[in-house]
Design a protein around this nucleic acid. Structure first.
Length: 514
RNA sequence: GGCGCCGUAGCCAAGUGGCCUAAGGCAACGGAUUGCAAAUCCGUCAUUCCCCGGUUCGAAUCCGGGCGGCGCCUCCA
């Protein structure tokens, strides 16, 4: 059982072998920060954050980089439109992006390089390409010569001839070859510009990733990720530049995630050409932020807890497209309720918070199950194996999540069979803690259930409310003791109307508020 | 026109040659439990994987052809 990763370059799942033993370098193409992040921007970071978590869990020392593109035509246009500088716009949008990552629990990124901080590195790479005869200056621009690269097109598996068959490549008479792309673009008046040997200008789109990944991670890296839409031309061009410049293999594993779509007949979320389907689709589009300037934060997280959104994104395989809809995410939230209840019952039984449980950080030191009753130990061991097997198979988070559900049932079954909610001995508490620790250890790999979900539940933050609830439930308890069911039920029904759920458990009454 | 992806129960979704007479979740329906509920546990819920052919001892999984949905070829993650 060993990790296998699907490589876009070979279109096969390959055994995962790193450049340097025990170390992994990974680079993910980040956003162009010209508008607030939409939900689609969160897909890649969540997936690759999970990839890093799993690699780290397997003992690898992982360095993870996401770049921030803070100079670009779209930024320039947008800044002009809203009347601020490119820098101001970029800073604002970057802050929004970071906020959203934080909410989604994406906190494994080691470096966020900014394109504008690495202009010199890019220029050096461009000059190197010119010196090697792979690029040529032309009227203040510099173009990469695709004919200088014999295997150009190997990532997206298309030949230059095939691409020329398309009608969309604009003809630029001056370029040597229509497929040649810009490494450096001369600037017009009023646009951000940097001095260069070819005249004032700014870098082309692709060069920043080549320059920054090489600077931070080296000429050859293990994993390069991004949305499927970036495979061509962006990654193809990056690959061509980098390998032409270094003569080394640029990337060992190219990983591309599927895109988020909304509605039945619309395109991907946030794309340049969203089609408009029926009304529901449009609502979904709006929520996704593609219709306007709304951030995920206000558009999606206002309706769904970020943890639910993360769980939703991981519930399907990363290479598949995922359908965004409020219904789908709400359904995910519904399916997660049982986990939160399991955490609550753990707290009731063991008197400690699920969230305070310390978990092993690596597979090698996984929770020991030896002290558990035989049948529980066997069951959990099997589930752990299946979880790891799923993750080893190209990060099959959907399958892994299924195992989390099965583990939940196993743990609840133990609590139920032993009647732990009524009374639990020290040994049973220890067993429950061990089982729950394993659960948390695996959930941690997916980056879920790491922090308490803040809510009005139990009303701990409001003394007045909890005081009232104590009083009301005390009165109801008296009514129940007197078998006055009419009064007891009237109270419970009225509270239900107020979105307060009352549960009579064997260990007493519990209430939660939506 | 070129290069690709996808189609599994009411819904979401894993599985990509034999352990599949197809995980898991939501919903639904029985049972245990409960004063009644809620929660929890147990059970039921696809002989079948869009359709039609083919390869194979054997296919949801491979090949061919349909039908349906989608992406890229536009500086979109």
């Amino acid at each position: 059982m060993a990790l296998r990763v699907y490589n876009t370059l070979t279109r096969e799942k390959e055994p995962f072998e790193t450049l340097q033993p025990g170390k992994v370098s990974m680079y993910l193409c980040g956003p162009t920060v010209y508008k607030p992040a939409h939900i689609g921007h969160m897909v890649g970071p969540v997936i690759f954050d999970t990839v890093k978590r799993y690699l780290a869990y397997n003992g690898y020392d992982v360095t993870f980089v996401i770049n921030i593109t803070d100079v670009d035509d779209k930024l320039i246009n947008k800044a002009a439109e809203v009347g601020c500088t490119v820098k101001q716009l970029a800073e604002q949008m970057t802050a929004d992006y970071f906020d959203n990552l934080e909410l989604m629990g994406v906190d494994t990124i080691d470096h966020f390089p900014y394109a504008t901080d690495h202009i010199a590195d890019m220029q050096a790479m461009i000059q190197g390409l010119i010196d090697k005869g792979c690029a040529y200056p032309l009227d203040g621009d510099v173009y990469f010569d695709v004919t200088s690269d014999d295997d150009y097109g190997k990532l997206s598996h298309r030949s230059i001839e095939q691409m020329m068959a398309g009608t969309r490549v604009e003809a630029n008479e001056r370029k040597k070859h229509p497929a040649d792309f810009a490494l450096w673009k001369s600037s017009r008046a009023g646009e951000p510009a940097w001095d260069s040997p070819w005249g004032p200008g700014r870098p082309g789109w692709h060069i920043e990733c080549s320059a920054m990944s090489s600077k931070l991670l080296g000429e050859s890296i293990d994993i390069h990720g991004g949305g499927l839409d970036l495979m061509f031309p962006h990654h193809e061009n990056e690959l061509a530049q980098s390998e032409s410049a270094s003569d080394a293999r640029f990337v060992r594993y190219w990983m591309h995630n599927g895109l988020m779509q909304s509605g039945k007949n619309t395109g991907k979320v946030g794309g340049g050409h969203d089609r408009h389907g029926d009304v529901d689709d449009q609502v979904a589009n709006k929520l996704a932020g593609s219709a306007g300037a709304e951030s995920v934060k206000t558009a999606v997280f206002a309706h769904h807890h970020p943890e639910v959104v993360r769980f939703f994104l991981l519930s399907t395989h990363y290479r598949s497209p995922i359908d965004f809809s409020n219904e789908n995410i709400a359904a995910t939230g519904k399916s997660m309720e049982g986990f939160y209840r399991m955490f609550e019952s753990y707290e009731r039984i063991c008197g400690a918070s699920f969230y305070d449980i310390e978990t092993p950080q690596t597979r090698e030191h996984s929770t020991s199950l030896e002290s558990l009753p035989e049948s529980l130990a066997v069951e959990l061991k099997t589930l752990r194996d299946r979880f790891l097997e799923a993750m080893d198979d190209d990060f099959n988070t959907g399958g892994a999540i299924g195992i989390l559900f099965e583990m939940r049932r196993a743990i609840n079954g133990y609590v139920h069979d032993e009647g732990l909610l009524e009374s639990a001995g020290e040994e049973q508490k220890a067993a429950l803690t061990t089982a729950t620790t394993l659960f948390k250890e695996l959930a941690n790999v997916l980056g879920v259930f790491r922090r308490p979900v803040e809510s009005a539940a139990a009303g701990a933050d409001d003394e007045f409310v909890s005081g009232l609830m104590d009083l009301i439930l005390d009165i109801r308890a008296e009514a129940r003791a007197a078998k006055n069911w009419a009064v007891a039920d009237k109270i419970r029904d009225a509270l239900t109307e107020l979105k307060v759920t009352v549960e009579d458990g064997k260990d007493g009454v519990h209430w939660t508020r939506d």
